[in-house]
Design a protein around this nucleic acid. Structure first.
Length: 541
RNA sequence: GCCGGCGUAGCUCAGCAGGUAGAGCAGCUGAUUCGUAAUCAGCAGGUCGGCGGUUCGAGUCCGCCUGCCGGCUCCA
């Protein structure tokens, strides 16, 4: 798995305090240059060899008949497909990294084993490089930067539910503003549905049966309500408020919906995994022959939006899970629809059998973050069940009632998660267009305060998010703090600037651009913002 | 939910083997008026996550709860 390895052992608990002792022992094994000897045996022989070892026996009996490979190294023989390095001396650098519990065969009902993680390389340099990246990733951690930059916070009073601060909301609103621009251009309309809906609705949608353990409930006037974990049932009700003609389709109805899901306490993780979040949802209602084009349209929108942030992604197709609603035929048709759209898009994708939602197969877009983890953000889920359950219809050219096809889709996925990914992706250094504070004005001394005030309001008048640092601190200190707060345009105001009617602009790459007149400043800055450019030095050309 | 680790001032962290809390930064006040990453001085700031227990005495030991972190599982 990537750069790391792990080994599960059924034993009393291990902690990181035990690592030095284990590593010393590992060092001995490496120094001994013990060879690995591969041996192929029959399944029966393997079962005989490992009698008394229940875990190995279970693994072996699940393997196909035929030869099974064993690797012997000293007095230890392990079951492994291989290949292995010739001897233990080939390991030039290694380190144990973490320890955790892991269920046997990832099954909660089975025994919990001790899983020890480590990493190993053919050279010390490679190991150091790997550890350096881990270190860098720690610095970019969105939880730390969120506190430092005053973007958001978490409180014991609402575990897993983020509080966005004033500066965080600036970024939030810009993300949505951009999103609305793109969606309007792509032919979407926007809707909004309530957070609480009654139990009957969730029974009708199938969530009561399939998703109840993740939902929050409330009782009002003797009626049971659920706080929505998904937006779709509400969207169904909106669709049903009036008859639809085939001429109206496709209807692309977006909704920034606030959903709540009771996730297990142990899985919460900053903005990446929360219990309350906003989805940039949309439900597209269409005729069967529009499936391919509509999905292709979403894929193109995904690509367009991610590229604005300089983010890469890959696609995964997930098929029917064990627990699901709908008929075999519906699933087949739905899965085929997604596959043909993917083929039309032409980009390679991964297939996850049995990983779909309970109401339909899906295509997920995964972004790669600064910690090298991939995060599912965008998702396109074809749903041939809900339209049935809610008896959706449209009138076709034949003047008959037909069932529309529906997809659910997101692009940011969870706005909270996407926000967190962006914080790490940019290391807190947002591009000019989305920076909470775009410019700060630093007067060199108090004599220049009133002029600096004028400059500040002049910039604000042009729509720039600009602040004045009027504190009686040294210029050095104010520059330092502006840099640390990742403010993209740092403007110092001294006699020179006042006299020449020009600006000295320091950008976040540390470069200072002297003598920029106001016309040029506004022209280049506003152009940079409008184009949502990603580069730091606004005046580079 | 499960396994492991944590929880000391707004932030980052000290606090040795139980004797009753400390630093830097931030904040406030005053002085300084400075040309591109920390001017100086003073002041203030903590029921040491919560509850209970052991003890003459608990931030330090034990138990439970809670939250966070890393995994398992799950997932937007």
């Amino acid at each position: 798995m990537g750069d790391e390895f792990y080994y599960d052992i059924d034993m009393t608990t291990v902690s990181e305090g035990d690592f030095p002792a284990i590593e010393t022992e590992m060092k001995k094994i490496v120094q001994a240059r013990t060879p690995f000897e591969r041996r192929e045996v029959s399944k029966a022989d393997a079962l005989e060899f490992y009698k008394g070892e229940p875990y190995k026996l279970e693994m072996i009996s699940d393997l196909k008949d035929g030869t099974i490979s064993l690797y012997k190294q000293g007095d230890f023989t392990d079951l492994c497909r291989g290949p292995h390095i010739p001897n233990t001396g080939f390991i030039k650098a290694f380190k144990l990294t973490k320890v955790s519990g892991a269920y046997w065969r990832a099954d909660q009902t089975k025994a919990q084993l001790q899983r020890i993680y480590g990493t190993a390389f053919f050279s010390k340099k490679d190991l150091e490089e790997y550890l350096y990246i881990l270190e860098e990733a720690k610095k970019r951690n969105h939880r730390k930067l969120g506190t430092l930059l005053d973007l958001f916070s978490f409180h014991d009073e609402a575990p897993g539910m983020p509080f966005f601060h004033a500066k965080g909301m600036v970024v939030w609103n810009l993300l949505l503003q951009y999103w609305r621009e793109e969606h309007q251009a792509a032919g979407y309309v926007e809707t909004k549905t309530p957070i609480m809906l009654n139990r009957e609705l969730w029974e009708r949608s199938g969530h009561w049966e399939n998703y109840r353990e993740n939902m929050y409930f409330s009782k009002i006037d003797d009626y049971e309500y659920a706080i929505k974990p998904m937006n779709c049932p509400g969207g169904m009700l909106v669709y049903k408020t009036r008859p639809h003609s085939y001429k109206d389709l496709p209807i692309r109805a977006a909704e920034i919906g606030l959903v709540h899901r009771h996730e297990l306490s142990g899985v919460l993780s900053g903005l990446f995994r929360v219990r309350a979040f906003h989805q940039d949802d949309a439900h597209i209602f269409m005729t069967p022959d529009q499936i391919k084009d509509e999905i292709l349209g979403v894929l193109k929108l995904v690509e367009r939006i991610y590229s604005t942030f300089g983010l890469g992604f890959h696609l995964e197709l997930s098929t029917r899970p064990q627990r699901s609603i709908g008929t075999d035929k519906q699933w087949e048709q739905a899965t085929l629809g997604l596959k043909s759209a993917l083929a039309g898009y032409g980009k390679e994708y991964v297939v996850n059998e049995g990983d779909g939602a309970f109401y339909g197969p899906k295509i997920d877009a995964h972004i790669r973050d600064a910690l090298k983890r991939t995060w599912q953000c965008g998702t396109i889920q074809l749903d041939m069940s809900l339209p049935d359950r809610f008896d959706l219809s449209y009138i076709g050219a034949d003047n008959e009632k037909h069932r529309p096809i529906m997809i659910h889709r997101t692009i940011y996925g969870s706005i909270e998660r996407f926000f967190g990914i962006l914080v790490e992706h940019f290391a807190g250094r947002f591009p000019l267009w989305m920076a909470p504070v775009q410019a700060v004005v630093l007067p060199i001394n108090d004599e220049l305060l009133s002029y600096a005030r004028e400059v500040t309001s002049r910039l604000q008048g042009k729509g720039l998010r600009c602040e004045l640092d009027s504190r009686a601190e040294s210029l050095n200190k104010k520059v330092r703090e502006a840099q640390l707060m990742q403010i993209p345009l740092i403007l110092t105001i001294g006699e020179k600037e006042k006299g020449a009617g020009a600006l000295s602009v320091r950008t976040l790459d540390g470069k200072v651009n002297y003598g920029i007149d106001y016309d040029r400043f506004f022209e280049q800055v506003l152009d940079h913002i409008v184009k949502r450019r990603l580069d730091l030095n606004v005046f580079s050309n």
